[in-house]
Nucleic acid binder design. Structure first.
Length: 418
RNA sequence: CGGGCUGUAGUAUAGCGGUAGUAUGCUUGCUUUGGGAGCAAGCGGUCUGGGUUCGACUCCCAGCAGCCCGACCA
């Protein structure tokens, strides 16, 4: 993509109402737009990152047997009444709205109820199970205090997968598959080294659940981490579970962290309330065993920025970078340099390498500053200097190494560094 | 939801009960061209509603919005 055609702008100063590093940088670099407190829109650059994150998640969910669906955001009050979760006392973060016809509807903050209800149409026999369905969809939670940029918002995307199993054993097997899938997701988006499976409260569903917590100063959670096992215990249950659940280590270190994912065993809480049953091999009617598994893709982006940036620049992990290469043309008025840059741009694009081409008529300093901010790790520079011997300069921001590369071998050089 | 703070050009800030200033941005021109360059001219502003006052951006009240601390986070 040519930067002259990118409508979003970088800015030198950030609006004073942003405090968190992730929101500051993402707004400064033109990835997101703040709509109101706790509500952000995605601009072209931000959407590219979001799509990459969502595709990583999709690939892992699909590989685990998940089938993608899309449930409605508007929620039927009656279904929620049958599980006791419609009242504002039970759930204080509901956004509710009045229908033109006079009734009430809610904007979904999660989807256990509607999917359980829906599955009654599709699950009858043990032959129909197990079922694993997921969606990536907008959730609404009326947080009394949004904060931390993309980490805690009122409207946010969530990948939520729901599992429907015949037996507790079948459920447990899938639960472990999800643990692996989640580990893969966080590892692929670059957060693996800082992300730890964490024992946590099961909320209203069960005694315990598992969270995936990324150690990060911007986090709102506190965990007790076993450095040996990379497993942690959430502070909320630490009094019940004061040692590492895997090795019994008592020397756990206290860390601030962001909850980037969680997985719950739901048992029959929802299948019972909504009557989701199946007939087993012996013609006996049984309740379906359920689980739910969530990841917030936008929160994940916020956490990635918190983890891989300084005050002036982002450095995206390559799997989620908006582009693979940022091509800078430094002397746009030099015909030779422009021609070289155009040739490189066309060649890389033809080789299916995603290139952001800074073809703007602005000074080198501004291009460098913007490129640092936007955060693509591989930078290719064409200028009146590089036309002299026909090579272009490649900077790998991760290592800080500059290399002069001939345009013929550029594509393979880049593929080797992605 | 309790407590606190703040609303001045697109953005960031200053100031004052009496014609609102600076930086940045944007427009135009000239000069520049490997780290947000320089000069010149121009564009653009007091959250909303009441009150006090001869006069309110400034003081008072309310509303709305935003931020911070705490509580909450299924």
């Amino acid at each position: 993509m040519r930067q002259t055609e990118l409508f979003s702008k970088t800015r030198k100063e950030v609006p004073k109402d942003e405090v968190s590093k992730n929101a500051k940088l993402l707004i400064k670099a033109g990835f997101i737009h703040k709509e109101m407190a706790g509500v952000y829109s995605f601009l072209p650059l931000g959407l590219r990152v979001l799509n990459k994150v969502m595709n990583v998640i999709r690939e892992e969910m699909n590989a685990s047997g998940g089938q993608e669906i899309l449930l409605s955001a508007l929620q039927n009050k009656e279904i929620w009444e049958s599980t006791g979760r419609w009242s504002d006392k039970a759930v204080d973060s509901w956004f509710k709205t009045t229908l033109g016809s006079g009734g009430e509807a809610g904007l979904g903050f999660t989807h256990e109820e509607p999917i359980t209800q829906m599955m009654r149409d599709h699950i009858r026999s043990f032959r129909d199970l197990p079922v694993y369905a997921y969606q990536i969809q907008t959730k609404f939670r009326n947080e009394t205090r949004a904060k931390s940029g993309l980490i805690r918002t009122r409207e946010f995307l969530m990948k939520d997968l729901y599992s429907f199993s015949r037996t507790a054993q079948e459920h447990d097997e899938f639960y472990k598959i999800m643990q692996t899938a989640y580990t893969n997701v966080f590892s692929r988006v670059g957060l693996g080294p800082f992300t730890h499976m964490t024992y946590a409260s099961g909320g209203s569903f069960s005694k315990y659940s598992h969270e995936f917590q990324t150690v990060c100063d911007a986090g709102e959670d506190t965990i007790h981490l076993c450095e040996k096992c990379s497993i942690a215990v959430n502070d909320e249950i630490f009094s019940d579970q004061p040692v590492c659940p895997a090795c019994g280590n008592k020397n756990l270190s206290v860390k601030k962290s962001v909850e980037v994912g969680n997985i719950f065993s739901l048992g029959t809480r929802f299948s019972e309330a909504l009557g989701l049953k199946f007939v087993d091999e012996k013609n006996e009617s049984k309740l379906v065993i359920m689980g739910s598994y969530g990841i917030g893709p936008a929160r994940l982006i916020g956490t990635i920025v918190e983890s891989f940036s300084d005050e002036k620049s982002i450095l995206w992990p390559s799997a989620v970078a908006p582009f693979s290469v940022h091509l800078l043309l430094l002397d746009p008025s030099d015909d030779m340099a422009r021609k070289q840059a155009e040739t490189v741009y066309n060649a890389l694009s033809a080789g299916n390498i995603e290139v952001l081409f800074d073809d703007r008529d602005v000074r080198a300093g501004e291009k460098f500053a913007d490129a640092d901010l936007i955060g693509v790790s591989l930078r290719v520079i064409a200028s009146s200097r590089t036309t002299k011997d026909g090579t272009v300069e490649v900077l790998d921001r991760r290592s800080g190494k500059h290399t002069m590369v001939s345009p013929d071998t550029l594509a393979s050089h880049i593929n080797a560094h992605l």
